[in-house]
């Protein structure tokens, strides 16, 4: 980190360059040390958690749920009846004991998910939330101006489509099941899952249509 050289010169150490910790870094290191000294945490577990959430859990999980719902009517019904159980059945279990609800987009209703209070999010199927999901403008405007928010994401819905906004909590998280794009008859589950973006499962995008590569 470059230092103010006139200051360093005053002290006669023009090339002395020591380390510096910002307050947040120092506080986190302090907390980790105190908890580790008390045996309350296992420092090795922290890396495992980060590895899990950065590389192993992500929106590919949710995309597989959506693709299966598109191709398997029994599974789609199970998802409607008890999404927590149906999604656990695919091996995607939440670690916070939360319940999941699947909300299905139709020509009449478009669903969109927010957490107005903080950042509750279906981690087990979507990984960690993007920064915009956690931002104050999204949390406020998803409720007050959902159509404007969708426009900012490049989504324009037909006039007759209503927007339902679901407010997540620590106990209940929502997964949007986007509408299956046209022209995907005969697609395999893997091919279909490739059309399902993270944002389409939050409700700020639509599933991708294969013909043009653009959002439908």
């Amino acid at each position: 980190m470059p230092h103010d050289h006139s200051h360093d010169d005053l002290h006669g150490h023009p090339h002395d360059d020591h380390s510096h910790l910002d307050d947040e870094t120092a506080r986190v290191m302090a907390l980790e040390k105190l908890l580790a000294d008390k045996g309350l945490i296992d420092p090795g577990a922290l890396d495992v958690i980060l590895d899990t959430y950065e590389t192993r859990v992500g929106p590919r999980n949710g995309a597989r749920v959506v693709a299966r719902a598109w191709t398997d009517p029994d599974f789609a019904q199970a998802l409607r009846d008890d999404a927590t159980a149906a999604i656990h059945g695919m091996g995607f279990a939440g670690r916070q004991g939360e319940h999941l609800t699947a909300v299905f987009n139709t020509p009449q209703d478009h669903n969109m998910v927010v957490c107005t209070l903080c950042s509750c999010y279906p981690w087990s199927v979507l990984g960690l939330p993007p920064t915009w999901y956690k931002s104050a403008p999204y949390r406020a405007r998803a409720v007050s101006d959902p159509r404007g928010v969708l426009a900012e994401f490049g989504v324009t819905l037909p006039e007759g489509t209503a927007i339902r906004v679901w407010d997540s909590t620590a106990e209940m998280r929502y997964l949007v099941i986007p509408m299956r794009p046209e022209g995907t008859e005969g697609f395999s589950e893997d091919q279909l899952a490739d059309l399902v973006s993270r944002d389409s499962m939050i409700g700020t995008a639509l599933a991708t249509t294969p013909a043009t590569g653009e959002a439908a």
């Binding site: 947040e24 986190v28 290191m29 907390l31 980790e32 908890l35 309350l40 945490i41 296992d42 577990a45 922290l46 890396d47 958690i49 980060l50 959430y53 670690r95 960690l128």
Partner: peptide
């Protein structure tokens, strides 16, 4: 690190 500490605790 703050995130991982929270999940771990």
């Amino acid at each position: 690190k703050a995130f991982a500490l929270t999940v771990h605790l």
